[in-house]
Write a protein that binds this DNA or RNA. Structure first.
Lengths: 198, 198, 198, 198
DNA sequence: CATGAATGAGTTTTCATTCAT
DNA sequence: GATGAATGAAAACTCATTCAT
């Protein structure tokens, strides 16, 4: 293996260690030594591969959003060969998003914490905005098929994401069964847009 | 001032100081001394009135939810004298909730952090669940007027709260104008229930 | 009851509270509020009846030694009417001392701690020396009946007290049954004196 | 110096610093920073080498008892070549114990405090019991040469240690000259056993 | 006499980060 | 690259004591 590959492996090893740590303790209570121990590397080494503790988190966010984005695209491509999305593919993709992403226990926990960290940390905030925007752009493409007005379509798609994150959040406090898990997404868009359109 | 009055004054003074502090820094970076300084009291006093730092937060949560609950009830009572809510009053109350609570900047910031704190702190988690359940019970009463099936009505009302919290969260990352702010709540309930009903 | 009597009652109440506290926690971990709580009085009041925390302990020592001294004298007087002690009365009194004082669980615990407190506190040290000297003087009177040489008699009586305190100490670490509890005190004196005499 | 050597040096340096500190102040008034200052190391380092303040003390006790045990054995071996102890060697060894250990000023002070600390700290109590038992086992071997009955021999040897600790304690309150320092240890055993035997 | 609010000094402990080996 | 010793700032919490009421 080349040095670059080793370097990348170590990096991923450490990011995965952070992931495991964040399932046990809040980030601010997770020490560099905790992460190092989970990754089976010396704690001094983390400062060789990453600038500081914050940098590990920043790169973790980047890495995780990328993974989910790739998952989303792969799933879409394999199921809906035609370029344009129809109602059925839109609905299915939305449902998959709720079930596989919003209701993913680990995802919910870790991102609930990252939202909080973003509040008073510009770098994390910027990173989050950037990724939510990328996500927004992608969902917008789907919604655009049913909503003529661009401004409305953008609003609808962002609200859809906000809704799915609300579901993610509440899956922490309540059981999935207590929430509506299968809905009429097309109708949802309509009702959301009704007044906004006026 | 009697000792009892002093006691209560101080407590509120400290809770308000925590509120101000949490607008500046994350809770875990807010020291007891920071809160004391904002409250203009000696830091030792905080340990006299509260068991520990966590206890201040717990009581802050209690106090804040209570305030919002009272606001909600007052608003409802003054506008809709008749006991049973009709479509119009339901819609207006929902809209008010989104605009005055979900889109309240301070509320959004502070509770986004409290969600994260709840993740690894049972006491905070229990407190949050308790208050969300109270909120849930209240919204359920409104929804019940339009939805016959109780199970469905409960699911719908909880999902409505999840949705409003999602909006609250996203008001941190984006501008209000980027989201749908006025919607057809009755239609929303219908579309959420469509598949769940089946 | 006169004010003076009330005052004394309160004082004893507080000294007894300290006694109870010291059975639970070391003195330095016992707060003024702990003592106040046990005595069922307001903590501010302790500073009215006593100069400070140390003063309570000093007075506790005085009070406790006095009690034991009175017990010793009473027991001696009731059993041995004649003024001069004979071998039998000396032996019995020694045995009583070991069994009732050295092996008194509470006495052992509390004084083991007071010895340590005396090490770096002159007032406590002086108080302890004063009472041990009083005790020494008393035992000397008994030993004097069998030992002609005053210097030797003084050494023997002090060593006898040291021995009984050693037993008190070890009753904390081991069971009474693991130690010799009934011995030939007269023979003990002889063997202790053998070489010292030369 | 290898890292392992550094590690051991530092440990001993810190234990020695605790020793020096305990000659000046009670343990509970000795701060981690005091010990660090005496050891000429950063106070944070103490938490790197030891779990906490209590752990330093625990290891100090272990270290100190070990040292005295080794001293005892060396002295015995160099003076009494024959395996079995005779009266003379027993008496000399006892005398040495009283003079070099019980009457060691530093030893007396520090252990008087450790006895008190053991009262409400299980770990220290266990450590002390363990070492006193080891000491007991060793003295028992000597006493066994003159006392046939094992139970009696065990009681006698433990009482002998209690006696020497009583002397240690009283050397704090009084001068050595006020106590019997050279005695007939063989006779002492006999008088202690007289009644116990019956 | 009695209360309890207020003070502030002091303590243990944690940890990101640096750096010599 | 890897190790682990070392640093020092910062935090929560305790508590004797004072004092106004």
């Amino acid at each position: 293996m080349s040095k670059k590959v080793i370097r990348n492996e170590r990096r991923l090893q450490i990011l995965e260690a952070l992931h495991q740590c964040m399932l046990e303790k809040p980030f601010y209570q997770t020490s560099i030594k905790d992460i190092a121990a989970k990754a089976n590397v010396n704690h001094g080494l983390l400062h060789y591969y990453f600038e500081n503790k914050e940098d590990i988190l920043i790169q973790y966010i980047e890495h995780t959003f990328d993974q989910y984005f790739i998952m989303f695209e792969k799933r879409f491509e394999t199921r809906f060969k035609e370029p344009g999305a129809n109602i059925k593919s839109f609905e299915e993709q939305c449902r998959w998003m709720i079930h596989e992403i919003s209701f993913n226990k680990e995802f919910s926990r870790i991102f609930t914490e990252i939202w909080a960290l973003a509040l008073y940390n510009h770098k994390i905030m910027d990173k989050m905005r950037k990724h939510y925007q990328r996500w927004h752009d992608r969902i917008f493409l789907l919604v655009k098929n049913f909503v003529k007005d661009d401004t409305t379509a953008r609003r609808l798609s962002l609200t859809l994401i906000a809704f799915s994150e609300g579901m993610s959040l509440f899956s922490i406090f309540f059981k999935k069964e207590d929430l509506c898990t299968d809905m009429d997404f097309k109708g949802l868009l309509n009702s959301l847009a009704t007044r906004t359109k006026q």
